[in-house]
Design a protein around this nucleic acid. Structure first.
Lengths: 229, 229
DNA sequence: CACACCTATATTGTCTACAATTTAAATCTA
DNA sequence: TAGATTTAAATTGTAGACAATATAGGTGTG
């Protein structure tokens, strides 16, 4: 199975060793190779990733900013833990921010960008029909990224894409999201794009918030059923 | 004039040298002692604040996470610049997040917390009557902090209080906000608390968003008039 | 004179060593 | 034996030296 978190973000390109180590560590955390809640020893990581502790610390700082690790002074860092409460909190933030992103996208996306978004949707529809859940997963990410970028609000883009989206992906990857919500989510995407096409800011925000709320309920059920088993 | 940014946040207490340096630097940036857009040389700061470059770099990383400095690999860091566009973007994020905070506060604050919030409001009202604009400024912060904390959403709290609020304060402090909006803002606060008291989540969010929108227009006018002079 | 190239300087990135702090084990005491 | 205290080990925090990169100034060439 090809994992979503291997998909590279086109706009970030690593320059320093700290950049590369940060991206590797982030992928390993999202993938679950570094297990949720696990202690992260600087010395161990230093040998494992073949860089000095200074580089590890720099990377760790950024991971903390991305909410993927938690640090305590003079004690150390741990991989973020996943919990139903944490998920709910995360999705509340997402709902709020992506709702605003959709609103701004309806206002600020160019006609061409909206056209491309429509094309993307039909392309995904064909693949979803064939039952290619991987493409659905990637396609969902792609859709949301485009709307977020379409907001043209750099703060918002930063907070979502560098800030919380990797944690969102961590939840989804580790809970093995490729569920039965695929087709219904597709319809929701379609309606959101329609609202954006109509430049209906109010509706775009409302539909996006609803979409994320549904999405949360879906993933939350999975998380609870896993804990019970 | 006593400055708002000197008000310490009760919940963060510095432990390491990097903590202290981070807080000092942050205050100096918000105050405008380190001027917006200015280049930040690690060596200079190192001597100025009496710590090693390692500490400065650690502090700088956190400042970057707080959107107060911008870094470029192999080039260096600059103090964030203030612009009308940046302000609009910032307040759009604030509107979205604090709207959600108000909604959650209506749901999650205890009756006692709501009572305390009401008391705070009447206390501020007395001071505002006397024309004490400093207390209004501090009181406004206090009000917003309580609502944010009242959301009980740790992610949201983090993103607002550690993430963007210092940048908000940087705009306000450097534009010398103690304007004529004092009393009208007070009424808005009152209505928000009323909605929270009634556990009306929908209205609480709506009123908070409107409040921030008005607040943005106010500060934006000031920023534009400064640029023209 | 304009432009490209090279060189010197300054700045950031990285590494290693040392200091401070935490943690756990071992010892002592009631 | 339970609990407190001390001590030793391991881990994080900080400092300073070196390496890599960018910037600016000078030199040469068309």
């Amino acid at each position: 199975m090809i994992s979503v978190s291997k998909i590279s973000l086109p706009f970030e390109q690593p320059i320093t060793a700290a950049d590369k180590t940060f991206i590797k560590l982030r992928a390993d955390i999202v993938e679950g190779e570094l297990i949720a809640g696990q202690k992260l020893s600087e010395a161990e990581l230093s040998t494992k990733y073949g860089v000095s502790r200074a580089v590890i610390r720099e990377a760790m700082n950024r991971l903390e900013s991305s909410y993927l690790v938690e640090r305590k002074a003079n004690v150390g860092a741990r991989v973020a833990t996943l919990s139903p409460e944490g998920l709910v909190e995360l999705y509340q933030v997402r709902e709020s921010l992506e709702g605003m992103a959709a609103r701004l996208a309806a206002k600020n996306m160019t006609d061409k960008e909206i056209g491309d978004l429509n094309k993307l949707l039909t392309k995904h529809f064909d693949k979803v029909k064939d039952g290619q859940s991987y493409y659905q997963e990637a396609g969902d990410l792609d859709f949301h990224y485009r709307v977020i970028l379409g907001s043209k609000n750099q703060h918002l883009i930063d907070m979502l894409i560098n800030g919380i989206y990797h944690l969102v992906r961590m939840y989804r990857v580790q809970l093995g999201m490729a569920g039965p919500r695929v087709t219904t989510a597709f319809d929701e995407h379609k309606h959101i794009v329609q609202a954006i096409s109509n430049r209906d800011e109010e509706l775009a925000e409302l539909l996006m918030r609803r979409h994320i709320l549904y999405s949360k309920n879906n993933i939350e059920n999975k998380l609870i059923s896993i804990q019970q088993s």
